[in-house]
Design a protein around this nucleic acid. Structure first.
Lengths: 227, 227
DNA sequence: ACCTGAACACCGTTCAAGT
DNA sequence: ACCTGAACACCGTTCAAGT
């Protein structure tokens, strides 16, 4: 009886994982506008099962985001043991940009006002906590200016993520350049060094814009921004 | 006859402006999820009239965004005549953040992948063009490092906009601080100066997060972000 | 020419019926 | 307990009828 019960729960748990993985793959491919019907279909369950496991489509998205943020926290904890504290910090920041790129649609959803909950905030707080530890170590090492905090870094990194979204498919080195700029902003004035590469031109941006007329796929790779 | 024709067109034009203004006000108040039905109602026209003037809700949003960006371009052209080129540049950047805050929902919509068209790209290109002129003047003045371009600046500014969205209602000075950080990144290494204020703490962020349980209004002021 | 609102299409969510 | 898909609700968009 209790065995049957556990088996049923195992089934439910399997459905939950299937839904998470189907949603994840579909969101990466085509952005957040894939419908719940398709997610359920790819996961091989009925629509209702999706809503039994996740109260809403937002909740499904939130569950995936929390998994991703938690992975970043673990990575940060590993880097806390690295020998060069400044390198560890900037390694972490670089990887963070990479993670944001991989699941861009998801993180955009969370940045929008319509998706915030306590679990996400908790995961986010842990991530900022690890970043703050990495930052403090780097500041103790003397290479990073001591009048900044983890939130300053986080905000700067936002710009890097935007750069990555806009240009990564034109020239991936633009991300390194932007990370250099962040590093220049964070370094103690005396140690500032010149940036790698050259500034992207407006033509490169416009050229990289999605082609007009063609049916828009809604791919996360096709983005632009006004500001 | 042609007079009648012009009068009818004048009516149509008036409806168009009413729709733009109604949409603008509603979007500022409650974000982009206000329905077209309500916009049409507030504008005092039928739903169909909205779609006669704008091919879609996206087009309506785009039309407002273009007006806003064009205003920024005009402001930039005025600042090109200022006496202190570095001050003019950073004044422009600060105001740009302010504009983004005022119509945050609109610009977020454009940053999302689902709203891009040639007109917006054109307006954006003009804005980057003016920024580039301001930057070049500041670089000639010697205060701004010469290995960066307008796009670098734009990307850094993204982070400032995020900071403003997250913290402006807690402590507006955080925006000045973030602008200082941008200025530090852009200044020639020797002239870098210490930032104003202090880093925001994690507690301030969490405390500023939307209250749980309360019905979310969808207000643009209630935001958080994971990265 | 332009305006209107009923009707349609689409998609997130619910729930009665099934196992 | 859990699963399912038909039915519902909501909102962007269309279009036949009106002026």
């Amino acid at each position: 009886m209790s065995v049957e019960e556990r088996q049923l729960r195992a089934d439910a748990e399997r459905n939950r994982r299937r839904l998470l993985e189907a949603a994840q793959a579909l969101f990466r491919e085509r952005g957040l506008d894939v419908g719940v019907a398709e997610i359920a279909q790819v996961a091989g369950v009925g629509r209702g099962t999706l809503f039994r496991n996740f109260a809403s489509k937002e909740d499904l998205i939130a569950a995936i985001v929390i998994e991703r943020v938690q992975e970043a926290v673990l990575r940060g904890e590993t880097l806390l043991a690295a020998s060069d504290p400044a390198e560890a910090l900037f390694q972490f920041l670089g990887e963070l940009v990479g993670r944001q790129q991989l699941d861009r649609a998801l993180f955009e959803a969370v940045a929008d006002e319509w998706l915030v909950n306590d679990e996400i905030r908790g995961a986010h707080a842990r991530m900022v906590g690890v970043m703050d530890e990495l930052l403090t170590r780097a500041q103790s090492g003397g290479e990073v200016r001591d009048d900044i905090g983890a939130m300053d870094v986080l905000m700067l990194l936002k710009g890097t993520c935007e750069a990555a979204s806009a240009f990564a498919h034109v020239d991936a080195r633009i991300i390194d350049r932007q990370l250099d700029l962040v590093r220049a902003a964070l370094s103690v004035p005396a140690s500032a060094r010149r940036l790698r590469g050259r500034p992207p031109t407006l033509e490169e941006i416009e050229g990289a814009a999605p082609q007009t007329g063609a049916r828009r796929t809604g791919s996360a790779a096709e983005r632009s921004q006004v500001l």
